[in-house]
């Protein structure tokens, strides 16, 4: 019996060791080597002292913050309204459906929409606003990123709203709260776990985006993701790329820790 159990777990453990632990260790290991293959802490010193990298990190965090904010502002009301519909599961499915369509294709569509003579500019000219350079701007990059992320924000918020016991809302009204008071004092705090999960699902990918950045934002290094891609695939400076990767991993843990607190509180009380 014992042997059979062991056999079961062998391929899975092999996967953990080879594809989970080893790569993680390797990226830390690689970050300690410079471009000439010498063991050194230079990468970290460069990262921390040259303003370029810090500024890039700051920009990346700032963009990710803006993308997350825009996504949240669009998604919360969407999730809220969806929740009050009759066939809410069906409508939710319609929000989710675009995530099943290849990401590249959705991004590609925006190249056409945003181009100098594309549909958006045609529309702008039509309403008399004139044509503008849309592609390769920060705004278009953020719009497309938000577009891609909306379903991933709507879904957790929708779920946490759907879990709210309707009698809590009745109780709030019964105790004299207006619709707005009920929202701020009951619905919003109770949907926080969904909001936090949504922020987690959007913020980290927004930090590491490089495909949308390249196609819509142009040939600029504006996120941690583009920096890593550039160092690994263009300048071949794997050490520096790994160093930025380590920074990204740390940033990921910070976000997860910051958005994980809601669950902590629930567990704490018991």
């Amino acid at each position: 019996m014992m042997r059979q159990k062991t056999l079961f777990i062998v391929p899975y453990l092999l996967w953990i060791v080879l594809f989970v632990l080893a790569p993680l260790i390797l990226i830390f290991y690689q970050s300690l080597y410079n471009i000439n293959g010498q063991f050194t802490l230079d990468n970290y010193t460069t990262y921390l002292t040259s303003g370029v990298y810090l500024k890039m990190t700051f920009n990346s965090v700032w963009y990710a913050f803006l993308i997350t904010l825009v996504t949240l502002v669009i998604s919360y009301p969407t999730a809220y309204v969806l929740n009050r519909l009759h066939n809410k599961q069906f409508w939710l499915l319609l929000v989710i459906l675009p995530t099943w369509i290849n990401l590249l294709l959705k991004t590609y569509a925006f190249i056409g929409l945003f181009s100098r003579t594309g549909s958006i500019n045609q529309f702008l000219r039509f309403v008399g606003l004139g044509s503008h350079q849309l592609l390769f701007t920060d705004a278009s990059f953020m719009f497309v990123a938000a577009y891609i992320e909306i379903p991933f924000m709507v879904l957790p918020i929708f779920n946490s709203l759907a879990e709210i016991n309707p009698s809590l809302i009745n109780a709030s009204k019964d105790l004299g709260a207006s619709q707005w008071q009920t929202f701020t004092k009951v619905i919003w705090p109770l949907s926080m776990p969904g909001v936090k999960a949504g922020i987690q699902a959007v913020f980290i990918p927004s930090l590491s985006l490089f495909m949308i950045t390249r196609l819509i934002g142009g040939n600029r290094v504006i996120t941690l993701g583009t920096a890593i891609e550039e160092h690994f695939l263009t300048t071949q400076n794997w050490g520096m790329g790994s160093t930025i990767g380590v920074v990204l991993i740390i940033a990921m843990f910070i976000v997860m820790f910051a958005t994980g607190e809601a669950k902590q509180k629930g567990g704490h009380t018991r």
Partner: peptide, 11 residues
């Protein structure tokens, strides 16, 4: 993030 997976697998 995918870049991390991609980069570490590449190494």
């Amino acid at each position: 993030p995918d870049v991390i997976i991609g980069a570490s697998f590449l190494i």
